[in-house]
Amino acid sequence: MRKFNFCAGPAALPQPVLEQAQRELLDWQGLGCSVMEVSHRSPEFVEVAERAEQDLRDLLSVPSNYKVLFLQGGATGQFSAVPWNLLGAGSSKAEFIHSGSWAAKAIKEARRYGEVNVVASSEDRNFSYAPAADSWQSSGDAAYFHYTPNETIGGVEFGYVPEVECPLVADMSSTILSQPIEVEKFGVIYAGAQKNIGPSGIAVALIRDDLLDRSLENIPRSLSWKVAAEAGSMDNTPPTFAWYLSGLVFQWLKGQGGVDAMAKQADAKSKMLYDFLDSSDFFSSPVEEGSRSRMNVPFVLADDRLDKQFLIESEEAGLLSLKGHRSVGGMRASLYNAVPMEAVEALVAFMADFEARKA
């Protein structure tokens, strides 16, 4: 019996996708072998790759002047790829909003290749909120402006898209495909797959065409967006199984009603959990109300001596991976697309019972 998985990543995958992959594992498309055993350049796999790209374009309404890339190295690889690809044409400055752990990692990497201007930070209140748009101002001379719309660890989500003069770059690893986005507002969108797209081992990037010729000299070939775009994301052997599974997730999302349907579900799931937290004297959210994430919900117990018991009992109840990130402690429930409403209902019921017994 499958349990309810609240892991922040690698995260839950849709059960129908896993079942299809299971059926096809040994004999894919009647070829007598697995999709993992065929050439990435075979007609059969090229069709998988092309359909995955088109389905992602359809889901996010990606304009024709954007390349859709399937890349290795996860979002962390893109922390390096972004400055490598964008700091070579004029300005060597990048601007950032520092909203938590993942923004910090992107900032640290960008500083290796150019000047970084942090225009706003929420460090003053332990990264418990998203800095307001009127609290900062871009200098106007940066090569790009980077932000993290959702901080997976801290559970902070931006309620707006920054308006800047330079290309806007967003790490959407934990929110992509959870709601409609206006791709045209961004120069670059990148995301690790292991939350709302598919398994770990692959990342997607949407790159506006005019940004493909701005790289630093001697950019590593494996990090070049231009090389990847010209090769159809196949300059070297790609992670074919992760690409195949991501494509199945895209098809599943279309069958569920696309990102509009996912947005409604995300709102309903997160509201149920936040409503419980706000009504409780035993559990609470450390995130300011206007910045709470729909995808990642951290929470703490009034008595942290009960943390270990909570985790033991929740796992026994079939509620997996509720331990908070090691850097912040507490608990965290990740509510990605593949986590059903029934999982949240079960979690809230368990928390209410635990409170009744332990408070």
Rank of each mutant, 00 (worst) to 15 (best):
V188L: 11
V188P: 04
V188F: 04
V188N: 06
V188M: 05
I189L: 15
Y190T: 07
Y190F: 15
Y190I: 07
A191K: 09
G192P: 10
G192H: 09
G192K: 00
A193W: 12
A193L: 04
A193R: 07
A193H: 13
A193F: 13
Q194Y: 13
Q194A: 15
Q194T: 03
K195H: 13
K195S: 11
K195R: 15
N196E: 02
N196S: 08
N196V: 09
N196L: 11
I197H: 05
I197L: 15
I197K: 01
G198H: 06
P199S: 04
P199V: 09
P199Q: 04
P199W: 00
S200R: 10
S200Y: 07
S200P: 00
S200F: 03
S200K: 11
S200M: 01
G201R: 01
G201S: 07
G201C: 09
G201F: 06
I202L: 15
A203Q: 03
A203F: 01
A203R: 05
A203P: 02
V204Q: 01
V204N: 03
A205I: 10
A205P: 07
A205M: 10
L206W: 11
I207F: 06
R208M: 05
R208W: 03
R208H: 15
R208P: 02
R208L: 10
D209C: 06
D209T: 03
D209A: 14
D209Q: 14
D210G: 06
D210L: 03
L211R: 00
L212A: 12
D213F: 11
D213I: 00
R214V: 05
R214T: 05
S215M: 12
S215E: 14
L216C: 08
E217K: 11
E217M: 03
E217V: 05
N218D: 10
N218R: 07
N218G: 11
I219V: 15
I219A: 09
P220V: 13
P220I: 14
P220G: 15
P220C: 14
R221I: 11
R221N: 11
R221W: 12
S222M: 12
S222Q: 13
S222E: 12
S222P: 02
L223S: 08
L223G: 03
L223F: 14
L223V: 06
S224G: 07
S224M: 11
W225E: 04
W225D: 02
W225N: 01
W225H: 02
W225V: 05
W225I: 01
W225R: 03
K226I: 05
K226H: 08
V227A: 13
V227P: 02
V227Q: 06
A229G: 04
A229Y: 08
E230V: 00
E230P: 05
A231P: 01
A231C: 12
G232S: 03
G232D: 06
G232L: 06
S233T: 00
S233Y: 07
D235Y: 15
D235C: 02
D235E: 12
D235L: 01
N236H: 09
P238G: 10
P239E: 02
P239G: 08
T240K: 12
T240R: 10
F241Y: 15
F241S: 00
F241Q: 09
F241M: 10
